[in-house]
């Protein structure tokens, strides 16, 4: 039987989760949390997840800041649409975006980003053609949205994950 690979990121995440939930950094809980992290990550490795390689901490920080700003901005934009008059010139619709991202972790991150900026929703990703379908609340121009998603989010994600 092949030895399961050790997953440092998952183990570290579980360890931090344990300490946060117990709200302490006492030795006993560090020991218990370490054991839980080892067992948990060992159990997770039975699923044989694809190896995750993350590079460029700077790019991660820059992307997170950009996403935070975008979340606040699009919250305000969607709030204005909701509170605005009921009949307004606004078209909602689906947009197809060709993506170069293939890494599943990068795609998952992109899904989180797209969904957590209100006004855009992740609908479907076609892995064979590599096109992503999103639903946009305020669709002015399709090509603008494609350029926004590809330039603002996809390029940094490509840098980080691939």
């Amino acid at each position: 039987m092949k030895r399961h690979p050790f997953l440092p990121l998952a183990a570290f995440g579980l360890f931090i989760l344990w300490l946060l939930l117990n709200q302490t950094v006492s030795y006993g809980h560090i020991l218990l949390g370490g054991a839980a992290a080892l067992v948990g990550s060992w159990a997770l490795s039975a699923l044989r997840p694809q190896k995750v390689r993350i590079r460029r901490l700077g790019a991660i920080i820059r992307l997170s800041l950009r996403v935070l700003v975008d979340i606040v901005k699009s919250n305000i934009a969607v709030g204005r649409i909701i509170l605005g008059p009921a009949r307004q010139e606004r078209r909602a619709g689906f947009v197809n975006i060709p993506l170069e991202l293939r890494n599943p972790y990068a795609l998952a991150t992109l899904g989180c980003i797209i969904t957590s900026t209100p006004g855009t929703l992740w609908v479907d990703f076609d892995a064979t053609k590599g096109t992503l379908m999103i639903h946009v609340l305020d669709l002015i121009d399709e090509s603008t949205w494609i350029r926004t998603i590809k330039g603002r989010y996809e390029r940094p994600l490509l840098e980080i994950f691939e």
Binding site: V72, N75, V78, G79, I82, T115
Partner: peptide, 29 residues
């Protein structure tokens, strides 16, 4: 207030796909 606006959107917007955008206000900001 943001959460309330999001829920208001759930009430006011016209089609299902539009309404689905509204609660994300509450889940983010």
């Amino acid at each position: 207030a943001t959460t309330l606006i999001g829920s208001l959107g759930l009430w006011r917007l016209n089609s299902f796909y539009e309404r689905l955008h509204a609660p994300t206000l509450g889940t983010t900001l």
